[in-house]
């Protein structure tokens, strides 16, 4: 079994939402012009992920998964509602975002002032729904693991957007070729940052055999090709 700490660290670095899966790219590109707004959006994403993933975890395990309804009555053990999971997850995300917005407005006006405009945007941020779907796919065994995963993903997203915002602020003073200005150079820099983040894949986790089963196809192709590169390097 992977330890909770492993899941947490992996979600921040080697399985970073932005650099490994490109989730939440739209707001990542649109809201990364200044560090200040990037910090606001990043904080909002951490917060919403931290709330929605555990809620979706409970939904998944006590309502949607094959046999999940067994706790209500043994006759319902063979009901599989997992085809409903998309609509349930997105409904949970949209309503929690709305709820969080109202709660924050009521009880923490200062925070609302800081996050205000970003909260509604988050309902359609891919990283939130992506967090829920990855949680479903990887089948974390306890809610603690799922929470660690969501917190790690949020922090990873935060690091990514703040870093690119800082770079974009500096890039304004450099001479970028006309056609690359703005979007083009941001894409390429994100690619380079992704390469840098890939070096975190060398981190050794507690149980290597489990790692391969748990990660998705995308990640496993990455690991495979990485191994290929390594072997290629050893025989010149």
């Amino acid at each position: 079994m992977e330890s909770t700490l492993d899941i947490f660290v992996k979600a921040i670095f080697s399985e970073n939402m932005i650099f490994a899966y490109f989730l939440g790219m739209c707001s990542y590109l649109a809201v990364s012009k200044t560090v200040k707004t990037a910090v606001g959006l990043g904080a909002a994403v951490i917060f919403v992920l931290l709330v929605t993933v555990p809620v979706n975890y409970l939904l998944e395990n006590y309502l949607l998964k094959a046999g999940a309804l067994e706790w209500l009555s043994p006759e319902w053990a063979d009901i599989d509602l997992s085809f409903l999971s998309f609509i349930m997850f997105i409904a949970v995300v949209a309503s929690i975002v709305q709820l969080v917005e109202m709660l924050v407005e009521k009880f923490a006006p200062a925070l609302y002032g800081a996050l205000g405009i970003f909260l509604p945007l988050i309902a359609v941020n891919c990283s939130i729904l992506g967090g829920a779907l990855f949680m479903q796919e990887r089948q974390y065994s306890t809610i603690l693991d799922a929470t660690a995963f969501s917190l790690g993903s949020g922090i990873g997203w935060f690091i990514a957007i703040v870093a690119i915002a800082a770079i974009r602020e500096k890039i304004r003073y450099s001479k970028v070729p006309g056609p690359l200005r703005g979007l083009g150079i941001t894409f390429i820099i994100t690619g380079l940052m992704g390469m840098a983040f890939m070096s975190f894949m060398g981190i050794k986790y507690a149980d290597e055999t489990k790692k391969k089963d748990a990660t998705t196809e995308v990640a496993s192709t990455i690991i495979d090709s990485e191994e290929n590169t390594n072997t290629n390097n050893t025989n010149p």
């Binding site: 899966y21 490109f22 390429i188 690619g191 940052m193 992704g194 390469m195 890939m198 990455i222 090709s225």
Partner: peptide, 9 residues
């Protein structure tokens, strides 16, 4: 080319 960053580039 197979790795994610190259898609961005």
């Amino acid at each position: 080319m197979i790795l994610p960053p190259m898609a961005l580039v």
